[in-house]
Write a protein that binds this DNA or RNA. Sequence first.
DNA 1: GTAATATGCTACCCCAATATAGTATATATT
DNA 2: AATATATACTATATTGGGGTAGCATATTAC
Lengths: 135, 135
Amino acid sequence: MTFTRTTEYALRALGYMASREGEMLSADQLHAKLKIPKKYLQRLLTDLKRSGLLKSVRGRNGGFILSRRTGDITLAEIVHAVEGTRTRPECFFGFAKCALDVPCAMHDVWIRSQSTVQEALQTTRLADIAGTTFR
Amino acid sequence: MTFTRTTEYALRALGYMASREGEMLSADQLHAKLKIPKKYLQRLLTDLKRSGLLKSVRGRNGGFILSRRTGDITLAEIVHAVEGTRTRPECFFGFAKCALDVPCAMHDVWIRSQSTVQEALQTTRLADIAGTTFR
DNA sequence: GTAATATGCTACCCCAATATAGTATATATT
DNA sequence: AATATATACTATATTGGGGTAGCATATTAC
């Protein structure tokens, strides 16, 4: 249960945008604020737009803006948008049969830890993390 | 908190070796049993030897053998040997200051989940997973 | 002493995630 | 109309994990 750097970027960017709900922010502004590689961020934002989480406006004074209310977007949704349907291993060791009949020693701990995070992702919303780092 | 495939390989290999404690096993035997790419496994085993977890014997009838008792080696130790001191982010989002003064919304869940697994790694020993998959 | 079977070592190749560069296109300001 | 500032798109490095190949070296069996 680790996320790619890209996912981290997405959460950071959207988290910041949540703290300025209603404002249109350009990739450049976000880059300056969040220190995420400019061009990479640009593409990521475009992707997030394509996935429906953001709206974009081209041209001067353009930028990106959340397409829904911050209280309405779960972190799980964001992770899913960025990572797609990445199948996670059911067993800690990648043992094929473990989960079925012969749980390995780490099985319980692993599953519990996974679902803890997973549930948190589903219940935590953008509004909950808005501006965490920017005070 | 996900591990590389290499770490998984190491845990698999050592787990199997634990189930045959005291026997000298060649990279080839392990490869045949565990379906881990031969050459890659070879190198991994050499690394594990260099890190002190295994002893090796060259030449005919040579191979690898655990250098300590299975009840004496923690999984944490193995992970550390393979991954080195990979610093994990303390904050779920990679927010620099989060852990310090302004915990993010995911902080507690994240830390708790991380340390749950971490503790399990420190308390689970090779003896506990010996031969898990091989019945 | 030669063949067979091991580990040890070095140099590659492949691929996906990450990152960069350049150009095309849209729009507001002047 | 021209300029400045945006996004959109495409192509191209870069990097690290994973994997392969070949030869050197050590040891046992014969």
